[in-house]
Design a protein around this nucleic acid. Structure first.
Lengths: 258, 258
DNA sequence: TCAAGCAACTGGCTTAAACCAGTTGTAGGC
DNA sequence: GCCTACAACTGGTTTAAGCCAGTTGCTTGA
């Protein structure tokens, strides 16, 4: 492995640049182990902290991940999962008997698991209340929190908000909502999903989210705020999907307005 | 300002937690200056590096930004710009005479500016070639690189790929493409955009992108790979939009497949 | 009055050393 | 043959100190 000293700048930058070059050139392949912090420091004639700072820079760029006691490794670029408007498709379910999540997992050869972490009557946060047309000042909503796993690796955290008036006294208060899931029960209450809106942002994870998703540092999240509208154009469900951005991608198809 | 010591854990975590609490409680408002590193260290009885590590954690979460020589400030949460399928709308242009970008800028009271950084005949990268149905082994594409500014602040970097056979000998080789822009010229070549596909991922910026977008550390980018299909369902244009994720959001509306 | 220059702040980066905490392979003992 | 225990690695965190480089405001002198 050739770690020639690059030009100018800060020592930590020089080390980071040299290692980045090895990665992009393919000399260090995904999954490979980097030299240890102490070894890098020795080779570049710096303090260990400086080599450590270089590795921090690379971690921040998402190029490498550190494992305590084992080493620092070139990150595998696997962005396996693709979500989009078909996430809400009823046709998928009718044709395959699988929810979109399970279908995507089957496609990837992964074992799906969904964990219901809480079901509560709550006062909805402002942004949700606005979209759901529910009061942000009373406990006007039901909140269901779920974590979705692929092979026991957490993939996404989903928080679903429904109007309390739609949920009260139904199976929506139970972890198992029955055939057709949440949307099945909501159809029985007269809400058939006709259109949807997804509002997408990317951001760094909060502390809690990073823990829930077992996120390595330097990985952002895709935050999708979904609103379902029924046959009358009325919103009846709002969900927030928080995905690990290194595992998830989104795809939308649309006609162009002429 | 009350900086009581929180429970357990690492000193750096304790400091970060205390400061985070001040921010989320609103005691430290967006734009406010944090105590200096040296001051935080003194109050918590730690070394300066430990206070510095705490601030690094908060920076990584996107809560604060440091300014050399001035201080560390609570980050303003301004996510002003919303893009989505209407980005490609011809109707907008016909009704207002403004491109979607200029319209959004006008909406936000910002001064738009577009800089063409390069126009070249190139061999397209694999993912683009695949979508554009162009050869990844010959210079089969035209690449146009643009940077979009709002009030002289870079917002997004856009790289557009067209088939060389569509672009050769047209105004598409010039910085100024004429009325209706790129899509106007492509219509003259027989491609009217009928549908579009957006593939969205979030990731940390590369070194170059961070510079081009003047990105503070800890801000991810939204990377949208757009494909335009014409009236015959043929792809004729692929663009990659790289947005600062702290300034941009995406919105998609869609009918639900029943 | 004004402006140059300086002092006192701010964060940025590095060194050097120490100890903690996971991981892994191996030498010994059973 | 297997398992335990340990040694030798790995990264994780902290301390303490120094110097550099932007920023700000005040002092001083023309």
């Amino acid at each position: 492995m050739n770690l020639d000293v690059a030009e100018g700048q800060l020592p930590s930058r020089r080390i980071a640049d040299a290692v980045r070059a090895l990665i992009t050139s393919g000399e260090l392949a995904p999954g490979d182990k980097l030299p240890s912090e102490r070894e890098l420091a020795r080779r570049f004639g710096t303090a260990r902290n400086t080599a450590r700072e270089a590795i921090r820079l690379l971690t921040e760029e998402g190029l490498v991940t550190a494992h305590h006691g084992r080493g620092v490794f070139v990150r595998e670029k696997e962005r396996m999962f693709r979500w989009g408007s078909e996430r809400y498709s009823r046709r998928t379910y009718q044709e395959t008997g699988l929810t979109p999540f399970r279908l995507e997992m089957a496609r990837q050869g992964k074992e799906p698991r969904v964990e219901v972490t809480s079901i509560e009557q709550i006062t909805p946060p402002f942004d949700v209340a606005e979209r759901l047309k529910a009061s942000p000042e009373e406990p006007s909503a039901l909140r269901r929190c779920n974590t979705y796993y692929a092979d026991d690796e957490p993939l996404q955290v989903v928080t679903t908000y429904l109007r309390w008036s739609d949920a009260e006294g139904t199976a929506l208060l139970q972890p198992k909502t029955g055939p057709g899931g949440i949307y099945g029960r909501l159809e029985e209450r007269g809400h058939i999903m006709a259109t949807g809106q997804d509002e997408i942002i990317a951001r760094m994870a909060s502390h809690d989210e990073a823990q829930a998703l077992d996120l390595p540092p330097g990985v952002p999240v895709l935050d999708v705020l979904h609103t379902s509208f029924d046959q009358d154009g009325e919103p009846f469900e709002v969900s927030r999907f928080v995905h690990r951005a290194d595992r998830a991608g989104l795809v939308y198809h649309f006609p162009v307005e002429n």
